[in-house]
Amino acid sequence: MINRLSIDYKQLPLIATIALFVLMFSFGSLRYTGFFSTQVFLNLFIDNAFLIVVAVGMTFVILSGGIDLSVGSVIALTSMVAASLTMEAQLSPVIVVPISLLVGTVLGMVQGSLIHFYNLQPFIVTLAGMFLARGLSYVISVETIAIEHPFFSYMASTQIPLPGGTFISISVVIAIIIVIIAIFLGHFTKFGRTIYAIGGSEQSAMLMGLPVGRTKVLIYTLSGFCASLAGLIFTFYMLSGYGLHANGMELDTIAAVVIGGTLLTGGAGYVAGSVVGVLILGIIQTIIVFEGTLSSWWTKIAIGVLLFLFIVLQRIIVIRSEKKQAKE
């Protein structure tokens, strides 16, 4: 009986997250006419598809006990690379898309290698990565580069109809595919389980003979790839490349992951939780739009308050389990 309770306890953040989402959606539905519709729900995905993709990569990083501050800048850099290659170099999307995806992947791999081989703090390495990516996008151009290309327009405007007259965008499909792959990766592959093990205790993972170094490099590579993919989706969404794109996005991403129930100390959490975390950030914005009189900064304040609550909740869980351990 006690055992069962303690497991529920560990999953409390995730349960709280889902409950919170349901609560907020019901709140919106009761308060605003037109809120309770499938399309409003689907719009959460359409507007936040890129955030879902970054959050997936970030979840793995945080699960392993690290952090990646570079993701926002990588989105900007990817959008700039895609825009300038398309508009200035006049290259075909067949070339542009792979190159754009390589941007974050390579940066992520370099970051991961620095963290692993030179034992540097993830915080500082990815901080440098953040400066670098943002700076490089300005080096490409200080101005916005608007994209006019059939491929990008197609990706931006195509609506995939769903029953009931609702629709989703291509980006949503990409995001969902990524989430499914990530869930598979996290729960049904050695790589995924090693991430959890590293987050639980890096030293134990090492003594158990797991490939800690290789996994750590891969985690940051994956996060970089996700950030680049998100950058492409963001580019479809904005149809432009700009050095200021996704400014501060790393904070939203981290917040979404934490609100999604992943422990910032690593080792516990779910990709699916991060998706719900993103949806909660989305629903806060939707409510603010529906409210009409509320201003956008309430989003930040609300996120801050949620962050605080979740972090304190996590801390209580950690203290509880430490006490339990001590008693035994």
């Binding site: 500082i124 990565g129 953040m130 943002r134 700076g135 300005y138 080096v139």
Partner: peptide
């Protein structure tokens, strides 16, 4: 804006 690139390099070298 290249300021940021320089800063990134400085951070890395120092670390």
């Amino acid at each position: 804006e290249t300021n940021l690139v320089v800063k990134a390099v400085v951070v890395l070298i120092v670390c």
